[in-house]
Computed example of a mutant assay.
Amino acid sequence: MHVVLTGGTGFIGSHTCAALMEAGYDPILIDNLSNSTLEVHRRLEEMTGKRIPFIQADLRDPASYEDVFTTYNVGAVIHFAGWKAVGESVEKPLDYYHNNLSGTLQLLSLMEKYKVTRMVFSSSATVYGTPQITPIPESHPLETLNPYGRTKLMLEQILLDWFHALPSMRIAVLRYFNPAGAHPSGAIGEVPTGTPANIMPYITQTAAGIRPKLRIFGNDYPTADGTGIRDYIHIQDLASGHVRALDHINGSPPMYDTFNLGTGNGWSVLELIRTFEQITGQTIPHTFAPRRPGDVAVCYADPSKAESVLGWKAVHTLEDICRDAWRWESREAELYHSR
């Protein structure tokens, strides 16, 4: 089956591409390269030994990628593309609404035009806002705290409305927690071209001497050590979750459903740093800064629904995340940054 991956050369998209190919799917990548590079595509082809179609296009310009739907018999779309930095979204809300909403609406229109009825959507745990209970189940009330999260929440509602209007659709919405790590081969990993949206690149770049010090935002949260607690999921587990979700919608009757992808465990920022130091032998100098707008104290998943329905469970440890992220940074990331 041909599967279109929007944002396909990004961090999550590239790892999911590799996982899909291992599972026998044929990915087609669409990306505007605003937060990735063509080197990712080259590495994916090198890793897999196969040609992977790639189209450089912006989803807001449907004419630039409509040929994908006429050239290939597209069976499904996995939609990763979108801006994702919480702090930046607070500073530039109109840009985030325009990019994330407009691009998705254009994509959905093409899917409807060409009768593509399967979709896996990249959502986020930010749709839960300040957690009322932890671990967080999918039934938790939805109320986000920042424009980025609101774009995800709005898009979930749009997809649900679309499903009600077109009941032949099969839509799986995946709410990610905190992706980290890298492919164990060291061939692909997280390559932020601007300000990283996740903490791990800050840690690995500090360890590599690219950054002098790690800034930790907030040490006065109501947690054991004062720093925020998050559910860090290995990128390989997250990628396998997409494969399981696609397998599920391929074999199911029409449906719309949501799934948490997380480990069910929470670690504080200081616990993450200590684990990284123990695994790698590197020291991470750090300092504390005020909390960022939109951040919450504790956020970790109840992933039991994904396990029972999709047959998916995270299997990698926090130690695996740190080991693979450092292997990536120390061996390969410099090559990407220089291109």
Rank of each mutant, 00 (worst) to 15 (best):
Y97S: 11
D26L: 15
A333V: 00
D247V: 02
T204I: 07
V74I: 06
T258H: 02
R170K: 15
L110K: 05
L145I: 08
K92F: 09
Y72P: 09
G294Y: 09
R215Q: 15
E277I: 14
P135C: 04
I78D: 00
D231H: 12
D26C: 12
A207E: 03
V120D: 00
C322R: 13
I203C: 07
A208P: 02
H2N: 15
T70W: 05
L107C: 01
V269W: 13
Y176H: 13
A314G: 11
T204P: 03
G241C: 00
A245M: 03
P285F: 14
I158F: 13
N32K: 14
L110T: 13
H248C: 13
F69N: 06
G186K: 03
S64L: 04
P222G: 00
Y128S: 09
N265F: 14
V191G: 01
I78C: 01
I279D: 00
H41S: 12
M169K: 10
M21G: 02
R323Y: 08
I203H: 06
I171V: 13
R118Y: 00
L318D: 01
L155N: 06
R291W: 08
P253L: 10
T130E: 15
C17H: 08
R331D: 13
A85M: 10
R51D: 09
T70F: 08
Q106G: 02
W267C: 06
T117A: 05
L107V: 02
G194L: 08
F54C: 10
I321C: 12
T134F: 04
Y25T: 03
N219R: 11
I321W: 11
A57M: 10
H242A: 05
K113I: 05
T48Y: 07
G7A: 02
A239S: 12
R42D: 09
N250R: 14
G87T: 15
G228C: 14
R211H: 10
E138V: 15
E329N: 07
T117V: 08
S123P: 03
